[in-house]
Every structure is written in structure tokens, then in C-alpha cells.
Simulated scan of single mutants.
Amino acid sequence: MSLKWLQWAQQIQAISQAGLAFTKDPFDKERYVELRNISADILNQYSNLQFDEIEELFANERGYPTPKVDVRGVVFKDGKILLVREKSENKWSLPGGFCDVGLSASENVVKEIFEESGYIVEVKKLLAVLDMTKHAHPPQLYHYYKLFIQCEIVGGNSTTGIETSGIDFYDVSELPELSLSRNTAAQIELMYEYYQNPLKETWFD
């Protein structure tokens, strides 16, 4: 679950971003920039990120703030789930990533699975829409929604991509070290429930 300081920092940043998007008053603009700096300072004090790095990221955000969207592909084979090893952490995750503008959620997950694993898939079902702040992920700068989408392999071959260094299918009881910023063991266990019960309704939050 998210820490309270992180929730405060995200909320302050969102208020400042929305204010900067709509205000026409130069004095209000200064106040919203100050709020953004306070948010960056909170994150700097309680995380490993540097103030200048955080401030630059926030300054590049424009328009009304909304949660960012991350898709994760859920692919089963003989009762085991497809995972890829992320080069950035050398840990494992469901294939996926942030949604690209111009593509639907299903188009994004098909693209991500192919790029990270080499498999060509068809989308079958939206299994879950999870709010990252309600699950055991490490603190993140932004607020994310994670879409878990079940897919079926229809072609391709196991091939690592630019961001991955390993591909394998794992039994849910023998998971490798996971990239917790991307997925948790509890979430993968939830996905396995859909393998056991295909009629299970979509889970959200």
C-alpha cells in the first residue's frame, strides 16, 4: 500500500499541474509552481530521487492530471504463466508497459508481448483493472492504473527484446524474483484464478 507522504506528494503535484494548466493569473502561477516544488521536496526527502530530477519530470507534465495506464499481458501455457526478465532490474514480470498514444489497450498489450517475448497473441479477456496505490508496489512518482489482459499465443517464437533478457513460463507456486513495480505475486496468483475459472468476472481496484 502507498505511504501517506507519497499520497500527499502526488495530490499536491496534481493540484499544481491542474492549476498551471488553467490559471491566467501570473501570481497564481507562481503559487502553483511553489506547490509543485513542495511536492518534489517531499519526494526528495523520502525517496532516493534527486530534487532536480523530480522537478524536471513534474515540469514536463502538461494539462489536467489523470492516472497513467499500464498494460500487462497474461499468457498461460500448460498451466504456467509467461514472464519476462527485465534488463533494467534483472527481475521478472508479466510482459507489458505504458500504453502508447494512438493504440488501444488491446493493441498495446499485443505489441508489448511481441516486443518483449517474441510471441504473437490474440486478446481474449480483460481480467483486472487495478489501482497501483491499493496494492503492494514500491512508491512511484505517479498514479497508475494497471490493466491485466488475458491473451492466447497464435504464433511467433520465444525471442528476447530490447528491454528483456529472459523468457519463460512459471508455475504460480514457483515464481522467480519479481519486479514489484510492475507486478506482485498476489496479482499473478489472481491471474491464475482466471486460468482455473475462465468465467470469473473482471476484478477492479
Rank of each mutant, 00 (worst) to 15 (best):
W5G: 08
Q7A: 13
A9Q: 05
Q10K: 15
I12S: 00
Q13I: 02
A14S: 15
I15F: 03
S16Y: 01
Q17D: 05
Q17N: 08
G19R: 03
A21P: 02
F22T: 02
T23F: 00
K24R: 11
D25N: 15
D25A: 02
P26N: 11
F27K: 05
F27T: 01
F27W: 02
K29H: 10
R31I: 00
R36V: 06
N37C: 05
S39C: 11
A40P: 05
D41L: 15
L43K: 14
N48F: 11
N48K: 14
L49T: 07
L49H: 15
F51Q: 04
E53L: 07
E55A: 13
L57Q: 13
E61M: 12
R62G: 01
R62L: 13
G63W: 02
G63H: 03
Y64R: 04
P65F: 08
P65L: 09
P65D: 09
T66E: 14
P67E: 10
K68T: 08
V69K: 11
D70R: 12
R72I: 06
G73P: 13
V74M: 12
V75H: 12
V75K: 12
L83T: 08
V84Q: 07
V84L: 07
E86I: 11
E86Q: 14
K87V: 15
K87F: 04
S88K: 15
N90R: 09
S93P: 01
S93Q: 10
L94H: 03
L94W: 03
G96T: 02
G97I: 03
F98D: 04
D100Q: 10
G102E: 04
L103M: 03
S104I: 01
A105F: 06
A105L: 14
E107S: 04
E107H: 02
E107D: 10
N108M: 02
N108I: 01
V110L: 06
V110P: 01
K111C: 00
I113F: 06
E116P: 01
E116S: 04
S117M: 07
G118S: 11
V121L: 09
K124M: 12
L127F: 12
A128C: 13
A128T: 08
L130T: 08
D131G: 09
H137V: 06
P139L: 05
Y142D: 07
H143W: 10
Y145S: 07
Y145N: 15
Y145H: 15
C151S: 15
C151I: 04
I153L: 07
G155A: 03
G155I: 02
G155T: 02
N157M: 09
S158Q: 14
G161N: 11
E163A: 14
S165E: 15
S165G: 15
S165H: 09
D168R: 10
D168E: 13
V172G: 09
S173M: 09
L175H: 05
P176A: 07
P176N: 07
P176D: 07
S179K: 12
L180H: 12
S181I: 08
S181V: 07
N183S: 12
A185E: 15
A185K: 14
I188P: 04
E189F: 08
L190C: 07
M191G: 13
M191F: 13
M191E: 12
Y192C: 11
Y194I: 09
Y195N: 08
N197A: 02
N197F: 03
N197Y: 03
P198K: 00
P198D: 00
L199I: 02
F204V: 00
F204E: 03
F204L: 02
D205E: 14
